[in-house]
Write a protein that binds this DNA or RNA. Structure first.
Lengths: 192, 192
DNA sequence: ATCCTTGATGGCAGTGACTGACATGAGCAT
DNA sequence: ATGCTCATGTCAGTCACTGCCATCAAGGAT
């Protein structure tokens, strides 16, 4: 039974994540050392690396949540729906998670765009998300390479829509931009 | 006038690239230090970093060639061809460049798959290629977000086709696999 | 001929990310 | 009590990468 009120301050991971994000915003990513992050979280550098594989990883805590939600959404789509619609519905579902986070997302995106290190890690997360969606589609019975291609297409619509959403002059909702993205894909593939 | 027969052995970059590739194959990527690479090339570590921004970059000399060829191909497509066909033709063009390199590509892919570092850099190269294709399509008059989506789709077909090509049981040509990929995209987007 | 500039290189010290090995000490089970 | 667990601390070490300065052949200018 571990109902531990342990001797250490609770939620070390959370404190590290918070400290890192704050410092990145305050001083910038490169100007922040791992030792800085750990110190602000009341821990040591060595402990940081026990919670996160590297300095970049602390920035991508949300990626796992997004993936879980995406897979849940795919499973929820009834089996007689076409592959295209299944992908569209699932991607719209995770787009919906971003509601009311535009300002936060903008600040985060500013950081990512400013540092090649973070962009690389973001691309890995995107690739992981794509692979997960591919697997989920295969479990629906979609054969290869259609599963990979459909997944790649869906995640592309998500990310391209994401950056458009961040500075959309009309302030449309993310979900609507995604829906429109899928329409564009349909149009392009029909050969206009 | 610089017809310099300089005092240094010629083609330092090439020697570094070759030394790096050989060492990565012999001992593995992580087991090879930058100092090792420089030593084998007859140079110093400091000089390595004057030619390549970091240890990973020396592995991706071919990326620039691929991008140039892709852009050349897009420019060569006549203006009255649909966006989809323009992308298909251009991507098939760079797929054609890989002819007779299957064995080499396989060894290279083994290295990339074995090291997250290299995967990240590969994804950045892919993103750069996608951005370049997007620009080329925009110059053809394709509006956003169709340009981004079509480019993303085309590059996805390329990369997904690439890994299928590497261990295709039927030993089909890369170009044929790519062509088939575009057909699959068409089918998926038409809603099967 | 002498001087000066250019450019690729070497040498060297320093920073910071990351790792391995070992120590510590509160909680929990027996 | 005794011992085990496990998150943490401590420390030394490797390696990627950078800044700064020295070198020294080639080529042009005076």
């Amino acid at each position: 039974m571990m109902l531990c009120m342990s001797r250490w301050s609770p939620n070390a991971r959370g404190r590290l994540e918070r400290a890192a994000y704050d410092l990145f915003v305050e001083r910038g990513y490169e100007e922040t050392t791992v030792a800085d992050i750990a110190r602000r979280a009341g821990l040591t550098e060595r402990t940081f690396f026990r919670h996160y594989a590297d300095k970049r990883e602390v920035f991508f805590g949300g990626a796992a949540v997004l993936q879980e939600e995406l897979l849940r959404a795919v499973d929820a789509v009834s089996a007689n729906v076409s592959t295209f619609e299944a992908v569209r519905i699932s991607v719209e579902a995770i787009a919906h998670l971003m509601r009311d986070r535009r300002v936060l997302a903008r600040e985060r995106q500013r950081l990512v765009l400013a540092h090649a290190d973070l962009q690389e890690r973001e691309l890995i997360k995107r690739a992981t998300l794509t692979a997960a969606l591919t697997d989920a589609l295969k479990q629906r019975g979609v054969p290869e390479p259609a599963a990979s291609l459909a997944a790649d297409m869906g995640i592309a619509v998500f990310y391209i829509g994401f950056v458009r959403w961040l500075d959309d002059p009309a302030e449309r909702e993310f979900v609507d931009i995604v829906r429109e993205g899928f329409d564009h894909i349909k149009a392009v593939a029909s050969g206009c």
